[in-house]
Write a protein that binds this DNA or RNA. Structure first.
Lengths: 182, 182
DNA sequence: ATTATACATGTTTGTATTGACATGTTTTAT
DNA sequence: ATAAAACATGTCAATACAAACATGTATAAT
């Protein structure tokens, strides 16, 4: 389905970027729903260029260090818009290794289950705090046609998702701790 | 990390199964957090057998139809238990194409956004109803050491997650519909 | 009888993805 | 001065995964 292609084109719609900047964006801002290594990004940019969907200019920093700053072409923008307008089927529930473990937790003693659950709880809680800090930067809902509106929607989604996972983990801990059920 | 390996071993801990049955399980019961095609499962079973983690007996249905019923070995069980006890790092947030779209939704007119959001909403709502029906089969929390306890935990998790996605989608629709903000 | 569905097991091809390998420059802090 | 961190771009090998190809048998419904 070439999702990476559209993730890159979408970013380039905002403004021209280098591969390095795209990689950074994938591994910080967008990381709540997308990510990719530079080892995937550079070949994809090369391919997009060959397909005529992006162009680049070479920038020099210092004496010789070269950076290719990519710009989306007319054709690239058309392609992206077409993809963005498509109504796609709901995607498969993503794989989740921790849930897989919990599915098999009947094979663990109760103490271990609680230990594993609490470790996840702690980690997800930290994640949530980071997200909340980011959220504080928004004093109001950004205008609907700005890029920041999209950022805002997915940030809200990330926070809600994180809170939900935490609630589930707490419920699980509760079920594990309930004594003397029969 | 060979997660498929452990997903299969985990199932075989419960009782011996054929490849076909494992595939079915992956695409119905476990589907809320795991899935795999038979084209992945059969080669993996072969590999596990070569590694001595599973054995199989051949069963004949009717005249000649053969099925390999796999059983976990002592060694396989040890390997599985070791994996299950490990406290692993929280996994990366899964990729989500719809969120990627919403991230870029500044490029869409408001009507299209609402259309896309409502399409997702409808689909996730159907999914939720299916899950709730499954949940009705539990009149109480199953005993902690039964296989059904694990089933119950992940089913609860799936319902909560689904409800959360729906809440997010509704919030997004709300933000898109708000008129005359400035 | 015939047809559809479920049972049953495999291989092959193409794509996606990760992690490691590989190389170098520029800037910032000490 | 020098060391560390950030900038910058690429390739390669291994794994994971999906979709299609390939080939049948058994059972239930009509």
């Amino acid at each position: 389905m070439r999702s990476l292609k559209y993730a890159i084109l979408g970013l380039l719609c905002r403004h021209p970027m280098t591969g390095y900047e795209i990689a950074k964006e994938f591994n910080s801002e967008l990381a709540e729903f997308w990510y990719a290594n530079h080892s995937q990004i550079y070949p994809e940019l090369k391919k997009l260029n060959e397909e005529g969907l992006v162009n680049y200019d070479i920038e020099i920093s210092g004496e010789i260090l070269e950076a290719k700053r990519y710009t989306i072409t007319e054709e690239g923008y058309k392609d992206f818009k077409k993809w963005l307008n498509k109504d796609e089927k709901m995607q498969k529930t993503p794989k989740d290794i921790f849930r897989l473990r919990m599915y098999f937790s009947g094979n663990l003693n109760v103490e271990t289950r609680i230990r594993l659950l609490e470790s996840q709880h702690l980690q997800h809680h930290k994640r949530l705090n980071t997200l909340k800090k980011k959220y504080e930067q928004y004093s109001e809902v950004p205008p609907r046609d700005s890029d920041r509106f999209g950022d805002f929607l997915v940030l809200r989604g990330a926070i809600m998702r994180q809170e939900n996972i935490i609630a589930w983990l707490e419920e699980c801990i509760g079920y594990c701790k309930e004594d003397d059920r029969d």
